[in-house]
């Protein structure tokens, strides 16, 4: 079961990255499929939690540097076949197998595309940035793409181990929000030619002993993230009002995250006096 969860984690990431690489109608399909694989991952995780077994989110690196989409699609199909061979005949196993059969049929019929997500050109279509703004955007994308992935895993782990509906509602909102940010930043990274799989998250970060301290630190980090977005918006505003507006939009979203985390902190303290 744990090996299956790792394989689903890796397949989810590879499918998501393939979605970022695509510049055609394939993109939406690949990203939708990656969302479903993430759900499979959480369902298998729940089975492990129900059995009260320990686990972590360690995985092996997922190589994605390809010149054509077909190469990564073939690799994803191989991963899916391995997952298929590990599934049982219960309802969950049947559901995942059925999804995988549909995915494989779709992946096999997708048009090939040249992939430019790794060319390191660091240029955006129709936007001309100064060297300073390009460097700032590059560093921001690496830092924040990882951060959003890290947050998805942290909130997902906390949610999997909590039966408090109020906390879980907040964790789910934060997971959804981080998915949106991860998708936007991943897409920008691919356009810039610097797409990369986020690194493995250390287990100390999600196997949280002190939820109160975690939430306090999280609020501080959100405030820093807001500042990063504001700095980036300033750095790119002279060259592109469109990009500046995007980072202001992200920055303003962080306000609600902070408010939710403060709510979660207040609620957790009241429940654990």
């Amino acid at each position: 079961m744990k090996k299956l969860m790792i394989k689903l984690h890796e397949a989810w990431l590879e499918m998501l990255m393939a979605g970022f690489m695509s510049n055609s109608a394939n993109k939406e399909t690949l990203i939708d499929f990656s969302d479903i694989l993430f759900r499979h991952f959480t369902w298998i995780e729940n089975e492990i939690v129900n059995k009260r077994e320990d686990y972590n989110y360690n995985r092996t690196p997922v190589p994605i540097k390809v010149t054509n989409l077909h190469i990564i699609l073939k690799d994803i199909i191989k991963r899916l076949e391995e997952i298929e061979s590990m599934l049982g005949d219960d309802d969950l196993g049947f559901r995942i197998k059925s999804d995988i059969t549909y995915f494989k049929n779709n992946l096999n019929s997708m048009e090939d595309e040249e992939v430019k997500a790794f060319d390191m050109q660091r240029e955006l279509p129709d936007i001309s940035l100064t060297k300073e703004a390009t460097d700032a955007l590059t560093l921001f994308l690496f830092e924040e793409t990882y951060k959003e992935y890290e947050l998805i895993l942290i909130y997902n782990y906390l949610k999997a181990h909590s039966s408090d509906y109020y906390m879980n509602r907040i964790f789910q909102i934060l997971i959804d929000e981080s998915f949106f940010h991860l998708k936007r930043f991943g897409d920008l990274s691919a356009k810039m030619g610097i797409l990369a799989v986020p690194r493995v998250v250390m287990k100390e970060l999600y196997q949280v002993d002190d939820v109160i301290q975690f939430l306090k630190d999280g609020i501080d980090e959100e405030i820093i993230a807001k500042e990063e977005c504001r700095n980036l918006s300033d750095a790119v505003s002279k060259d592109s009002s469109e990009l500046a507006q995007f980072f202001d939009f992200i920055n303003n979203q962080e306000n609600y995250h902070i408010s939710l985390m403060r709510d979660a902190l207040k609620h957790y303290i009241s429940q654990n006096k």
């Binding site: 360690n58 690196p61 790794f118 690496f142 610097i194 990369a196 690194r199 493995v200």
Partner: peptide, 9 residues
């Protein structure tokens, strides 16, 4: 940054 060498446990 894209492919850190020797990353992982």
């Amino acid at each position: 940054m894209m492919s850190p060498k020797n990353y992982g446990s």
